[in-house]
Simulated scan of single mutants.
Amino acid sequence: MPETSVLPFFERPDLSPFLVHLTRNTVDADGYTAYENLVSILGTGEIRGSTTKSGYIKGKNSAACFMDVPLGSLKYVLNESNTAPKNPRYEAYGLIFTKTLAYKKGVRPVLYLSDSELGKMGVPADELWRVVRLEAVDGTGVNWVHEREWRCKGNFTLPKNPLAALVQTTDDARKLRKHINSDPDFFESIPGSIIPLEILCQGLPYLAES
């Protein structure tokens, strides 16, 4: 696979050399906020795969999910509908990985297929975690292609020093850095940088500050 520097990311603003995993709160299930889930991921060094019940994954296998979205475009992902406080799809906390690393760890673009196409193609049951439903592209059907989703089967093990952690505010960045510095033994993975999304996205108008 070509090195990142060889690929045409500098010539194409719609392409990114990175994949992003965003967290959300699981307060109803375990009381964790999105920030606390990020800390938990760094603490265990692992992104746990979602299931059919928790993340619309097809089949019996779980899968860890990422999106291939240029970092400057995350503000369009973190919009009003996706960040609805009572049932958010995403929140402004997560991690960044290079595609080179993710690919080596088995992360691949999903297959966007309608249910009828899925049946005709005969995708093996053990590979259904790769498939995301796509039906109608006129705004009336199921269509999540804008997320440019990538997945890996099961859990995703983080490197010891992931590229960067994403947090919502500069206060969150200071809090996470303080936690890491005061208790480094807690963290299986320590990010090389901590990026506040309120700065990267030039404001997050739909999100209340932490």
Score class of each variant (00 low, 15 high):
residue 107 V to H: 06
residue 29 A to S: 08
residue 48 R to L: 12
residue 6 V to C: 13
residue 95 L to M: 10
residue 196 P to G: 08
residue 179 H to M: 15
residue 131 V to A: 10
residue 40 S to P: 04
residue 159 P to L: 02
residue 93 Y to R: 09
residue 115 D to M: 07
residue 112 Y to A: 04
residue 62 S to N: 12
residue 135 E to D: 15
residue 45 G to L: 10
residue 142 V to D: 13
residue 88 P to I: 05
residue 108 R to H: 12
residue 3 E to V: 14
residue 120 K to S: 12
residue 62 S to K: 07
residue 157 T to F: 06
residue 16 S to I: 00
residue 52 T to M: 09
residue 131 V to S: 09
residue 4 T to S: 15
residue 120 K to V: 12
residue 2 P to S: 14
residue 99 K to N: 06
residue 63 A to K: 03
residue 185 D to E: 15
residue 11 E to D: 15
residue 147 E to M: 10
residue 132 V to D: 10
residue 65 C to G: 04
residue 166 L to T: 03
residue 114 S to I: 00
residue 198 E to P: 04
residue 110 V to G: 02
residue 93 Y to V: 02
residue 207 L to F: 01
residue 200 L to Y: 04
residue 133 R to C: 13
residue 157 T to A: 12
residue 8 P to R: 05
residue 32 Y to K: 14
residue 74 L to C: 09
residue 153 K to I: 14
residue 34 A to T: 07
residue 78 L to G: 02
residue 91 E to P: 04
residue 88 P to K: 02
residue 50 S to P: 04
residue 119 G to E: 13
residue 20 V to A: 06
residue 28 D to A: 15
residue 100 T to H: 15
residue 147 E to A: 11
residue 51 T to Y: 06
residue 201 C to H: 03
residue 170 T to R: 12
residue 206 Y to C: 07
residue 132 V to A: 08
residue 18 F to I: 04
residue 55 G to Q: 05
residue 15 L to V: 01
residue 86 K to P: 01
residue 75 K to G: 00
residue 183 D to H: 11
residue 134 L to N: 09
residue 15 L to M: 15
residue 52 T to A: 15
residue 32 Y to F: 14
residue 69 V to S: 06
residue 148 R to K: 15
residue 69 V to H: 05
residue 144 W to N: 09
residue 126 D to A: 08
residue 54 S to Q: 05
residue 68 D to K: 03
residue 178 K to F: 10
residue 185 D to V: 13
residue 190 I to S: 09
residue 184 P to E: 05
residue 193 S to G: 14
residue 188 E to S: 13
residue 110 V to Y: 07
residue 172 D to W: 02
residue 114 S to Q: 07
residue 198 E to Q: 09
residue 65 C to S: 07
residue 208 A to Q: 10
residue 87 N to A: 13
residue 189 S to R: 04
residue 57 I to M: 12
residue 123 V to P: 10
residue 152 C to V: 14
residue 156 F to A: 07
residue 174 R to L: 08
residue 209 E to M: 04
residue 41 I to M: 10
residue 85 P to L: 00
residue 154 G to P: 01
residue 115 D to N: 11
residue 1 M to I: 12
residue 108 R to F: 03
residue 44 T to C: 11
residue 32 Y to N: 15
residue 189 S to A: 14
residue 203 G to F: 01
residue 169 T to Q: 02
residue 9 F to E: 10
residue 204 L to A: 03
